[in-house]
Design a protein around this nucleic acid. Structure first.
Length: 969
DNA sequence: GTGCAACATTAACCTTTGGCTTAA
DNA sequence: ATTAAGCCTTTGGTTAATGTTGCA
């Protein structure tokens, strides 16, 4: 075992710069010296597992253990610098004697992963532990600062917290956007499948004998076998996925290389079928981000931490994606699959490298995955290739035995690999990897190495199907084709064709395969003719499991409606029975053309969009000409899907009935629900009879029914009675003064109600409730012969006219901690409506006039106040600025009202005001110009007024000598 | 290890009708 | 004297969804 000190020595011998530049080589050194990383990973896996299992106490206990040991052993002497490091070191040693350096490293990596570090950062971060020892509470790797004591603790807390409404709303929005993006992507690929050049190229590759399929009058699934076999043997799935390129180009590359992502290869199969004049859909599982917030995080974390072998070495899927063998929902949003994104980021450049390679060497048909990997490894920019060794050592212990987690991890890896039928290429890769393992395996990214290990243990069958998954022989297909076989059934049938895995008519297996790979079958969409149709029902037998994970059906149907129409138009017409001879002829021409243009690919794919589109259209018209049965085929399928929806098998677990759309059991009804009628019994689940969901009726109180314009029929007994809560009972009892009267709540079903019959208004009197009002929940709640006048202040009018009315309560609002009724307008007898409205109009006019008058008066008053204030201010300025105390004491301003009266009763004053405040003359009435002294009333004459241009001040003088200065406004 | 059932926890929903002071 | 407006203060029980735990 390497100790921490040993590790440090190693680190010291290796400069930081070197670490960053040549992580792989350094990894190699570690690897050579005692499987350090292997041991470390084991330790980290255990540590994190323990931490997770302990929940929030995990790290604190680690700290405590560290502190205790520090005290007991006298370590560490140098303060906090190495605290965290030592802490983990000690803890790990305590457990299994493993080195702590990698524990720290990988713990940090874990943090980094949560911080959405991509794969390259993940790998870079695994080496430079020198950095780690330099900080106490924080550690910096490659510029990323990670606080040490966050990890599983906070993650756990976060996952324990439930999502708020806002978060749910956001998640729903993201979900919708993601769906739309994936729909767009599917349409894109579907469109690419119609590319005549691609189709022609495929035909040119197809052996002539297989063209006979076009001559089959009634196509059956069986007839497809030969073509599917051929395709399966000639096209392989491999990664990294090309997700950045346009589908047309991606297909061209895949066609040339005879390999591509599952999506591309499937699209090629669709293109081939279409070239053969079959009616085909490109089907994809839209692996959309979860509709529920936070759902992805626990999922990923559970995968990452729950598995002993996984732990911070990331979830299995990450490992797989890291290997570049799985391209899943490339347009998923960042929140959907961090793992995918990280993977995608790294593979983007890889694919470009690959693309360049293809362009430079168009004949490199044998560009095997191995070659790809070599290219990848040589790419200096692909930092994710660094430090593969530590991961490479994960799978086996030094002694060769396997740990539980490793086996588990490999199992997951198997699933993912089989999901993309990677087994096809495995056999080829194995031989190459045998060499690589000896020499270059240390340089491989983790999952690449994992794959090597895996292939040693999991022999691949000759036909490329995985045998490692036992019963789950079929991997999780995310893409396949649907071929319309008119020879199936009486009316024809859409047949599932997974050319990638060479599976025909395996629709029943899809759900299981998808579930095995922990993918969700929420949306299965078939694309054709730029349209799309949701065919999830065909593949999902347990709808109740996905129902809650799907967006609300109304929105989804609205989105799909126009696409469905397009799809229906495109797949409705089949012409292969009408012009068979010409078809074969055409195909021969296409094949020849394909041979000519084959070598030009992908350049030929770059033909002008316009001409391409034109070709496409021409071809489509020929191929997808409408026939009179198109709508019938579409509706037949709709019926089929609908039938599946209505004939879902009974779930075997009780909880599934809680919100099941079709079935219900009594124990999962809530208190406002009842079975009526109670039958028929469709089956039993754990002894509970299962009823149709249509038998479930919602119950309400009499009052609640009344709000809906219904009333309980006379002499109807409550369908259900239950006790109120203690408090409610007490309140009710208190009101009724009769204990026991109000402690029960009677509920009625809709079948016990009839339209509301309120007492009619008679003699102009409005029937009111016990509170003297009318509850107007809706128009239905208005007593016959009355109208609701929803006008403000209309009650006053009715009152003035002495017309009987009732305040209209329209609802409640929660205010000041309690519900308060909201009144809007009044309810009056219909015959008074016009009179009231007329009076109301008059009253409103009068009120408006009054209000206007009041406003004007208020404006006047405010002007008075303003001007008085100005005068006062000026006077005080004059008095105190000049230091004339006697003047100050002499000048006392009257209150406004006094001044007003003075002004009003003094002609001279009015005149002076007009002169001296001429600036305000047009806007406002003259202001008072009198200042009263004890024994003298100052009068400011116009002649005595002086104006100073410089300071814009005007000086007024009284004959007595008193003067006031003020600024001209 | 997985699925199920029971229980625990928590966010969201549902309920629902004042009283006093001050100004006009 | 009457009436309108403003202010105070911000429930708590129930349900459904979700998490946890234990069992087969």
């Amino acid at each position: 075992m390497r100790t921490r000190n040993q590790s440090r020595q190693t680190q010291q011998s290796i400069g930081e710069e070197d670490l960053m530049k040549h992580p792989g080589s350094i990894s190699g050194k570690f690897d050579d010296s005692g499987m350090l990383t292997n041991i470390s990973r084991d330790a980290v896996g255990r540590l994190l597992k323990r931490v997770k299992s302990r929940g929030s106490r995990g790290l604190s206990r680690v700290d405590e253990s560290y502190l205790q040991q520090c005290h007991s052993t006298g370590m560490p002497e140098s303060g906090s610098k190495r605290n965290s490091e030592l802490c983990f070191d000690q803890t790990v040693r305590e457990d299994d004697g493993c080195c702590g350096r990698d524990v720290i490293t990988n713990s940090l990596l874990e943090s980094g992963r949560r911080g959405e570090l991509d794969e390259s950062e993940w790998e870079e971060g695994s080496i430079p532990a020198v950095n780690l020892a330099n900080t106490s509470e924080e550690h910096t790797i490659g510029g990323v600062t990670v606080e040490f004591d966050v990890t599983p603790d906070s993650a756990k807390k976060k996952s324990a917290r439930r999502a708020t409404a806002e978060e749910k709303e956001l998640a729903e929005l993201v979900h919708k956007v993601n769906l739309l993006c994936l729909l767009g992507r599917g349409r894109s690929f579907d469109s690419a499948c119609n590319d005549p050049l691609i189709q022609a190229s495929l035909l040119s590759l197809l052996p002539t004998r297989l063209l006979k399929i076009t001559e089959v009058p009634k196509l059956t699934a069986k007839a497809l076998a030969s073509v599917v076999d051929w395709f399966h043997n000639n096209f392989r799935v491999r990664g990294p996925g090309s997700t950045q390129e346009p589908p047309h180009l991606a297909l061209a590359y895949a066609l040339e290389a005879h390999e591509g992502t599952a999506e591309e290869v499937t699209a090629l199969s669709v293109a081939l079928f279409r070239a053969l004049n079959l009616t085909v859909r490109f089907v994809a599982i839209l692996d959309v981000v979860s509709l529920k917030p936070e759902l992805d995080k626990p999922e990923s974390s559970s995968q990452g931490t729950g598995k002993a072998g996984g732990g911070i070495f990331s979830s299995s899927t990450l490992m797989v994606t890291g290997s570049g063998h799985l391209s899943v929902s490339p347009l998923t949003t960042p929140t959907s699959n961090e793992k995918d994104n990280g993977f995608r980021t790294s593979i983007g450049c890889k694919r470009k490298g690959k693309a360049r390679l293809l362009e430079n060497n168009p004949e490199s048909k044998d560009s095997s995955p191995v070659n790809n990997l070599k290219d990848i490894k040589m790419e200096p920019s692909t930092s994710d290739c660094h430090d593969g060794v530590s991961d490479a050592c994960l799978a086996t212990k030094p002694d060769g035995s396997k740990r539980k987690g490793d086996l588990e991890f490999e199992m997951q890896l198997d699933m993912a690999l089989s999901a993309t039928a990677i087994e096809n290429s495995k056999t080829i890769m194995d031989s190459d990897f045998a060499d690589l393992c000896g020499t270059k395996s240390k340089l491989l990214p983790p999952a690449k190495k994992m794959k090597v290990v895996r292939t040693e243990e999991s022999p691949v069958s000759a036909n490329g199907m995985s045998t490692a998954i036992g019963s789950r022989k079929v991997g999780a297909p995310l893409y396949w084709a649907e071929v319309y076989c008119s020879g199936e059934n009486l009316t024809g049938k859409w047949v599932h064709v997974d050319a990638v895995n060479a599976i025909i008519d395996g629709e029943q297996k899809v759900e299981e395969a998808v579930a095995a790979c922990r993918k969700s079958l929420r949306y299965v969409v078939a694309f054709a003719g730029q349209g799309a149709k949701d065919v999830t029902r065909r593949y999902c037998m347990k709808w109740y499991k996905i129902a809650s994970q799907r967006i609300n059906a109304i929105w989804w149907d609205a989105v799909l409606a126009p696409l469905k129409e397009l799809e229906s138009q495109a797949t409705g017409g089949v012409v292969h029975l009408q012009h068979e001879a010409s078809k074969v002829e055409n195909m021969g021409t296409l094949q020849a053309a394909g041979n000519q243009i084959k070598d030009c690919l992908p350049d030929s794919c770059l033909m002008s969009e316009k001409s391409k589109r034109q070709t496409c259209e021409d071809y489509s018209i020929e191929k997808y000409g409408r026939n009179p049965f198109s709508s019938m085929r579409s509706s037949l399928e709709d019926m089929e899907l609908e039938t599946r929806a209505l004939t879902e098998p009974l779930p075997t677990n009780q909880q599934a009935y809680k919100n099941h759309q079709l079935y219900a059991i009594e124990r999962w009804l809530n208190k406002y629900q009842i079975l009526h009628p109670k039958g028929p019994i469709l089956g039993f689940c754990s002894g509970h009879p299962v009823y149709p969901r249509t038998c479930v009726q919602t119950l309400h109180t009499k009052e609640k029914w009344m709000r809906e314009g219904l009333q309980v029929k006379a002499e109807e007994l409550p369908a259900k009675i239950f006790k109120r809560s203690l408090k409610q009972s007490e309140e009710q009892a208190g009101e009724d003064d009769e204990v026991g009267e109000g402690d029960h709540l009677a509920l009625y079903g809709k079948w016990q109600t009839e339209p509301l019959c309120l007492p009619r208004a008679i003699d102009g009197i409005v029937p009111k409730n016990e509170r003297g009002q009318v509850d107007v929940w809706s128009e239905k709640c208005l007593p016959p012969g009355t109208v609701h006048l929803r006008l403000p202040r209309v009650a006053l009018v009715a009152k003035r006219l002495e017309i009987d009315y009732a305040p209209a309560m329209v609802g409640f609002e929660f205010r000041n901690g309690r519900s308060v009724p909201v009144f809007e307008g009044i309810v009056v007898c219909a015959e008074f409506k016009d009179a009231i409205l007329e009076a109301y109009e008059e009253e409103e006019e009068r009120r408006m006039a009054e209000e206007k008058r009041r406003n004007e008066a208020q404006a006047l008053s405010r002007w008075y106040q303003l001007l008085s204030s100005i005068v006062t201010r000026q006077r005080l300025n004059n008095c105190y600025a000049n230091g004339s105390s006697h003047e100050a004491s002499a000048g006392i301003q009257k209150p406004d009202d006094t001044l007003s009266s003075e002004v009003g009763g003094n002609e001279d004053g009015r005149k002076f005001a007009g002169c001296q405040l001429d600036k305000f003359k047009d806007d406002k009435p003259p202001a008072p110009q009198f200042v009263l002294a004890d024994d003298h009333e100052h009068v400011f004459l116009l002649d005595d007024k002086m104006f100073d241009e410089g300071s814009s001040t005007r000086t007024k003088r009284c004959k007595c000598g008193f003067s006031i200065q003020f600024e001209e406004l």
